[in-house]
């Protein structure tokens, strides 16, 4: 446990000292989302209808931008070798690094999401569901993305490869993430919002559990072979 917290706190400290890392993903998120009204026109109903999709797709792309950061610096400066050799289990270490990544990428995105939701005329109920969905979905994005980040260490054009590896695996999260908000927006009675969004949220939770299981295993295997 102490090794876990040690890694999380170090990665957080690194991110806080290099603030550009922290703000880049959020800035990208907001700016990209803002482009859509210019491309599609300012009609409020249209924007409200497509808002869930836009928010999720842009959030997904913002996470994508930051994935390489999780392991690349550690790989290049030799920290990764020390991490593999340290007493902490590699699986725990990977989870710690993913948590740090989520805290510095996923969480800021969630905090910025209501702002975009406002710009797109989303109503409050849908916004609440949006936050729940992102809370359940963005950790999966970090977890699945971490696998691709470990696999591409030392590859030629690793940064270009990551999107190709990760995007097919992100599709379920995208579908259920958007589905939850759509279900909330389409429910006619006020009381049915939660009930309608529930299956989607549960499925997002299930994806999170599966990712929590796969990432440490696949990541540890990938890291070991990356250092050989």
């Amino acid at each position: 446990m102490s090794a876990f917290l040690n890694i999380v706190s170090k990665d957080l400290r690194l991110a806080l000292r290099q603030r550009s890392d922290l703000t880049m993903a959020v800035l990208f998120f907001i700016l990209t989302a803002m482009l859509f009204p210019f491309g599609l026109g300012p009609e409020p109903n249209l924007l409200a209808r497509i808002a869930p999709g836009i928010i999720w797709v842009t959030a997904l792309l913002s996470v994508l931008l930051s994935l390489e950061r999780i392991f690349l610096a550690d790989y290049e400066d030799g920290s990764l070798e020390q991490l593999v050799l340290s007493r902490a289990s590699l699986e725990i270490a990977i989870l710690a690094k993913v948590l740090a990544h989520w805290l510095t990428t996923g969480l800021p995105l969630i905090l910025a999401a209501p702002l975009i939701a406002l710009l797109f005329n989303m109503d409050t109920e849908a916004m609440t569901i949006l936050l729940f969905a992102m809370l359940l979905g963005t950790p999966s994005l970090s977890l699945i993305g971490a696998i691709a980040a470990t696999l591409t260490l030392g590859a030629r054009r690793g940064g270009v490869l990551i999107p190709l590896l990760v995007l097919p695996l992100y599709i379920p999260t995208l579908i259920f993430g958007v589905g939850a908000i759509d279900a909330a927006m389409n429910s006619l009675e006020a009381g049915a919002v939660i009930a309608n969004a529930r299956p989607h949220l549960l499925l997002l939770g299930a994806i999170l559990l599966v990712s929590l299981l796969i990432t440490p295993l696949a990541g540890a295997a990938a890291l070991k072979q990356a250092l050989e």
Binding site: A73, E76, D77, G78, E81, L85, R87
Partner: peptide, 21 residues
């Protein structure tokens, strides 16, 4: 591995942290 300490070519030093950190 719990009995060894390996130092490779690279120093595993984070530039933004202090020496003590």
């Amino acid at each position: 591995q719990e009995h060894i300490h390996y130092i490779g070519h690279r120093n595993a030093i984070k530039p933004v942290l202090t020496v003590q950190e």
